[in-house]
């Protein structure tokens, strides 16, 4: 969703959501990181959670007047300097299509492209980790080629495996553990994104990046 101005909305009495305007960009995400950094210290805020060009603030207790926090966020958005984070880059070998990518057919049908074109476009960019979410250690990545964007599935799949490489709308990512998902799985890789005994437990953090290397393509 793009609008020309930031939007705020309530997530019940638990949290509020701030959504940046415009197309999804790294520059906007850097402003989100900067606002998150500041807003984490707002009184009454338990956690500031960046998403894809948006930010969720979780309340300690439902505030008497949430509009005051919304107003503060909007003011901060206008003055904040983007926070550049330069992280590390990891390469992930991916098996595309076949059993490794059971929904490749849906992406082919939606985009009208061949498997090879989809794989080429998916593996070309260096993807920046914009945010973590979904499940422990999972990374939301920025930079997917808009031409391979494919809508989320009509009904979520009850279980997709760890390592599944998938496309949901204009985003792509890699499942960090087995679980339900509404995204289209086009391939698979192997990596441990999260280990509770590691410090920090998540392998990657916002600002790090991922490159997908084509291991094989199953047609």
């Amino acid at each position: 969703m793009t609008a020309d101005r930031p939007r705020t909305s309530l997530l019940g009495t638990t949290a509020l959501l701030f959504e940046a305007p415009g197309e999804t960009t790294l520059e906007t995400q850097r402003r989100i990181w900067a606002v998150a950094h500041e807003a984490a210290g707002f009184p009454g805020v338990r956690e500031a959670v960046p998403g894809m060009n948006n930010l969720m603030l979780v309340f300690v207790e439902p505030p008497r007047r949430p509009e005051e926090i919304e107003q503060r966020l909007l003011e901060l958005w206008n003055v904040v300097a983007p926070l550049p984070i330069a992280g590390r880059c990891i390469d992930l070998p991916v098996a595309y299509g076949g059993e490794a990518g059971p929904h490749m057919a849906d992406v082919i049908e939606h985009t009208g492209m061949s498997v090879d074109e989809i794989v080429e476009r998916h593996s070309a960019p260096t993807y920046i980790v914009f945010a973590l979410g979904s499940h422990p250690g999972y990374c939301y990545l920025g930079g997917m080629d808009a031409r391979i964007a494919t809508p989320r599935r009509k009904v979520p799949v009850l279980k997709i495996p760890r390592g599944a490489v998938s496309i949901g709308g204009s985003q792509t990512g890699v499942s960090a553990s087995d679980g339900p998902s509404g995204w289209n799985t086009i391939g698979s890789t192997q990596i441990a994104f999260f280990d509770v005994n590691r410090s920090p437990p998540a392998l990657l953090q916002p600002g790090d990046s991922i490159r997908f290397k084509v291991a094989r393509v199953l047609r």
Binding site: L11, G12, M52, K154
Partner: peptide, 20 residues
């Protein structure tokens, strides 16, 4: 009209409506 949103934080209690 069909909606595709960017991923964002959600909390227990959120009522989502998938395309179905």
């Amino acid at each position: 009209r069909p909606l595709e949103l960017r991923s964002h934080g959600i909390v227990p209690g959120v009522i989502q409506v998938p395309h179905g």
